[in-house]
Simulated scan of single mutants.
Amino acid sequence: MKPTIKIFPETKFIGKNLSFSYTDYRAFELWSSFMPRRNEIQNALGTDLFNIQINPENFDFNPQTKFVKWAVVPVSDFDFIPEGMQSLIIEEGLYAVFNHIGDVSKARETFGYIFGVWLPNSEYELDNRPQFEMLGEKYKNNAPDSEEEIWIPIKKRI
């Protein structure tokens, strides 16, 4: 599994977020509260959904370490933010983009490969910026033929 190295442009998002850890993983709760309301976002750019994770500085992947997960859509502006939703901006940056095929149960294998094999053997290191999955037209929740892009923030090793 070889990634494509891309620059993600500065992008505005509107959606919902929750703070939790891998031990107390509540992504289903987050997405269940967001999906029925996503059409309230009036200035969405396209139909892609983004599952964004913002890790604390020096994230250690400890199962108890908390991070913030966002369920969002990209938007043209922040002129109207539905009640109970928040805005987020991801700054432009370098990313390794992996294509994940399979249902959510296979994601652990993909992330294990990314962080345990590819990243340590690459010319890059993890950068402290948001990582995310882009859920586009080929994404089918929990289907074996579902496809999504995994965007990992990177920088050249010094």
Rank of each mutant, 00 (worst) to 15 (best):
S19H: 00
T4R: 12
I114P: 09
W151F: 13
H100E: 00
S146T: 08
L45E: 14
V75T: 07
W151Y: 15
S122A: 03
P144V: 09
K6G: 08
K2P: 06
P153N: 08
R157V: 15
E29C: 08
G93M: 03
K140N: 10
W70A: 06
M134A: 01
N39G: 07
W31E: 02
W31P: 04
F50W: 01
T23E: 15
F67Q: 01
A96C: 01
K69F: 13
A44N: 10
S21G: 15
N99V: 13
E133I: 05
F61V: 07
G46K: 07
N39H: 14
I154F: 10
Y124V: 02
L18K: 14
A27W: 02
R38C: 10
L45T: 13
W118P: 05
D77W: 03
I14C: 12
V117I: 14
E133Q: 04
G116W: 09
R38E: 09
N99S: 13
V75S: 03
T4C: 04
E40M: 14
E123A: 00
N17T: 06
K66I: 13
Q42E: 13
K140M: 00
I5F: 12
P9F: 14
S19Q: 12
Y124I: 00
E57L: 11
S33Y: 12
E147Q: 09
G112D: 13
Y22K: 12
G46R: 13
N58T: 09
V68Q: 10
F111C: 10
F80N: 02
A96T: 07
F132H: 08
R108G: 05
F50Q: 01
E133C: 06
I14R: 11
Y124P: 09
I101E: 11
R26L: 09
E10Q: 15
P82H: 05
D127H: 11
D145T: 03
F8D: 02
T65I: 07
K138W: 02
T47K: 10
D48C: 09
A96L: 09
F59M: 00
V73Y: 04
I152T: 12
P130I: 00
F78W: 05
N39K: 13
E10M: 12
